[in-house]
Each structure stands twice: as structure tokens, then as C-alpha cells.
Amino acid sequence: MSDETSISRPPSRGQLVGDVLFRRVSQVSAALVLVLVAFIVLRISLAAAPAMRQHGLGFLTERIWDPNKARYAILPEIWGTLYTSVLALILGTAFGVAAAIFLSEGFLAQATYRVLRALGIELRPWWSKLPDRLEAALKNLVNLLAAIPSVVYGLWGLFVLIPLIRPICNWLHLKLGWLPIFETDLSGPGVLPAVIVLSIMILPTVTAISCDALASVPPRLRMAAYGLGATRWETILGVIVPTASRGIFGGVVLAFGRALGETMALAMLVGNANQISVSLFSPANTLAALLANSFPEAGPKQIGVLMYAALVLLGITLVVNVIGSILLQRASAAAGAR
């Protein structure tokens, strides 16, 4: 430091203060999030406490919801929530993972490139970037599905989807009505429209996380498979998807959390019927839809009951999300170890 020509010097007072300030601000922000979550859980629990004392665990296992007799139980809603979410998850995962494979394995870019080569313009500067740009654009388009408001999905379901699928559903009921899943007809809102819309809503989550998981598979594994004489499908299904499977699974669990909590679209589409049925065409109800539909007319006593239901929903969603986060962390740790 005695050297006159050296530019190096210790950090100034301002730099040190800025450093400390930055650390404090981020610590407080992080703490605020935790405090907020704790506060929400606490307030809901307090509001739910009287109802919990009055109805106990029978609230979770009985079927009757009758405000006139002050009898409340939410088993049909728990069933409806899980049933619609699981079905939507199966549908959404199938299409979401397929879309992720299409987007991250270069199918579109390759097809575009072929067209450009056939036209003889694949080497022109502007056109040569087109395949990758198209692929990026399509990825963003899938993510845009997440930006559509829930109520718009609900309206679309009511006015487009239900009229569209109704003839098919009723035909299925007529021909295959002996199957439990087709044992009622679709008279309007019901499980199937809710499931279809819900699966579209969770598709971006599944696709985005699956894309990342697939993209994080080291390219040398792809080369290894091709080098052994694997076809493209053998490479994708035999090596790439299994290697990315943990990441994909984490995405699926996060999507499940989203499906469980989805409110507006389901309140519009699920039919709000307090019953347990495996039929895809019968109306049902979910916890979130129950809350959304019941709060506007709820008296002070009923609010406690609804808070109890909200706490149950919160519990289910929280557990699912925590599991998803843990799986994601493990997957990225495993990827880091490679």
C-alpha cells in the first residue's frame, strides 16, 4: 500500500456501510415473509378455533352441510378437491411433459431448419436464427397460459368447453353408462369440465419445470446414447427423461399444489354439489370453491366453520408444496453432483 503506483486500496466507509445495509434489508425482507405466513396461519386458526371445538374431527369425515340445522362437514369437498386435482394432474402431466419434450429436444427448431434448408436460405444471417427464436417464442407462449386470469378460464369453460363436450359426454353416458365414471349425464357444470380447465391451468407449471429439468440433463449423456446407436426416441425415453425424472416429478408436485388451491375457475365449473361421486359428469364441489361461494352470505358462526375448512385446505396445500420443494432441491443437488 506504500507503493504510490498501486491502484488497490481497502474498501471505503461508504462501501462498508452499503454492504451492511444491503444485508440488513435482505434479512428483514426474508423475515417478513415468514412473519406474514405465520400471521395468516395464526389468524385463520384463531377464527377457526370455535368451529374446531364444536365440530371436532367429524367435520372431516361426515357429509352433511346444512346451515339451517347448523350441521357442517366437508368430506365431499375434500374428496372433490383431491379427485379433480388428481385427474387434472394426470391429464396436465401427460400433455405438459410431452410439450416439454417437444420444446426442449429441438423438434420445432429442427423442423424449421429443414424448411429453411429446403428453401436454400438456412445460412442467411437473419433466417439462421429463426429456428431457435421460434422455439423460444413457443416456450413463452406456453408460459402465457399462466397469465390468463382464472375467471377467464371459468367463462371459457362455461360458454365454450361445456357446450363442446356435452354431446360427447352424454353419448358416453348412453353407451357406457354401466361404468362408474360415466354413470351420470353431464347437464352443465361438473367434474370433467373442471378437470379439463384445471389441467390447462397447471400445464405451464409442469411444462416450464420439465423443460428446465430436461435442459439440465448433461449433453454428454445424449451423445452417449446416440453413440451407442439409440434412435431419437430411445435416447429421449431411455436416457433423458429418466435422468430428468426427479425434476419433472418436483414440477408435478408443485402443479398439484396449484390445482388444489385453484378457486375461481372451479367455483364456476365444478357444479357446487355437496356429494361424493366418481362419475366424471356429475357436479361436485371443492374446498376452494366452497369457500368462494359461501363467504358472501356467511353469518358470524358460519365464518368460523369456513375458516376451519380453509385451514384444512391450507394444510393439504402446504404439505404438497413442501414435498415438492424437497424433491426439487434433491434433484438439483443430484444434478450438481454430476
Binding site: 448433461p218 454428454r220 451423445m223 452417449a224 451407442l228 446407436g229 436416457v239 429418466p242 443430484a334 454430476r338
Partner: peptide
Amino acid sequence: RYIGMVFQQPNPFA
């Protein structure tokens, strides 16, 4: 399938 290959980076499958 007739001409095998070994790469620079060891690349066993997971």
C-alpha cells in the same frame, strides 16, 4: 451400432 464411441468426458447414464 456397428461403430462404437467413447467420449472425452466419461458419460455413464444415471
